[in-house]
């Protein structure tokens, strides 16, 4: 859902630009806690993979398509603060190098794809991790549900921005219905890709999955208790 230049007026684009700058600044501070010598290169690869995956548009019927946004995926793999930075770097490279997404719309795209999908994906994931059985096998399904929900919420936020600062006056109800409908279908693709990638990394190296770490810690505690007895 890369927003091109021209969809939103200047004040709205300036506002989302300010939101993006603030979020990136906060994330630079927050990411310090998530990144060390081992996870920093992992985060670089997650950002690189999200860039590559965003090149793959999958058909979602009736002449339209969607691609991974990657916010939920990155949040579960490397942590939410780092994830905002991952997707932001992707969006900057796409806008500057590939002319994918506008330049004045960069703040809007960072807000929608970088902030909203990470915040929603991570919040849903953490909530599910709390209620689901505390097992590693639950990490990928929880990530997939977070991904599924993150996409229509981003579509909802775009529609809200468009209702405030859209450069064309159109039937907002029609925009809302169509955006939510299509992006719910795209969200299924987002969920499938996110679930498969997270499941693969959890199966090979669960210690490298940020969202799986509390579960690993618990597993270690159980072993130690047994050893003492």
């Amino acid at each position: 859902m890369h927003v091109p230049d021209g969809f939103l007026d200047a004040p709205t684009s300036a506002a989302t630009g300010a939101v993006a700058v603030a979020a990136v600044a906060l994330s630079l501070r927050g990411a310090r806690r998530e990144l060390d010598d081992r996870t920093a290169p992992a985060a670089g690869l997650v950002a690189t993979f999200v860039f590559a995956a965003q090149m793959i548009n999958f058909p979602v019927g009736a002449g339209t398509s969607g691609h991974l946004m990657g916010g939920a995926l990155a949040a579960v793999l490397v942590g939410p603060w780092t994830a905002v930075l991952c997707v932001s770097v992707v969006l900057v490279v796409q806008a500057l190098l590939m002319a994918d997404g506008g330049i004045t719309a960069l703040g809007t795209n960072i807000t929608l794809i970088g902030i909203v999908t990470v915040a929603v994906g991570w919040t849903v994931f953490v909530a599910l991790r709390r209620v689901l059985p505390r097992r590693l096998s639950m990490v990928a399904p929880a990530a997939a549900v977070g991904a599924l929900i993150s996409v229509p919420v981003a579509a909802l936020v775009f529609t809200a921005l468009f209702s405030v600062g859209g450069n064309v006056s159109v039937d907002l109800g029609a925009v809302l219905t169509a955006m939510l409908g299509w992006h719910t279908v795209i969200g299924i693709g987002e969920a499938v890709v996110t679930g498969l990638v997270v499941a693969t990394v959890v199966a090979t190296r669960p210690d490298l999955v940020h969202g799986a770490r509390p579960l690993l810690f618990e597993r270690e505690l159980e072993v130690r208790t047994g050893a003492v007895r």
């Binding site: 859902m1 890369h2 927003v3 969809f7 090149m55 793959i56 548009n57 999958f58 058909p59 979602v60 002449g63 339209t64 398509s65 969607g66 691609h67 579509a155 775009f158 925009v175 169509a178 955006m179 299509w182 992006h183 795209i186």
Partner: peptide, 13 residues
Amino acid sequence: YASSHPDGLEYVA
């Protein structure tokens, strides 16, 4: 081999 159809936002636009 990616789909060349417009993405969700373009299509809705």
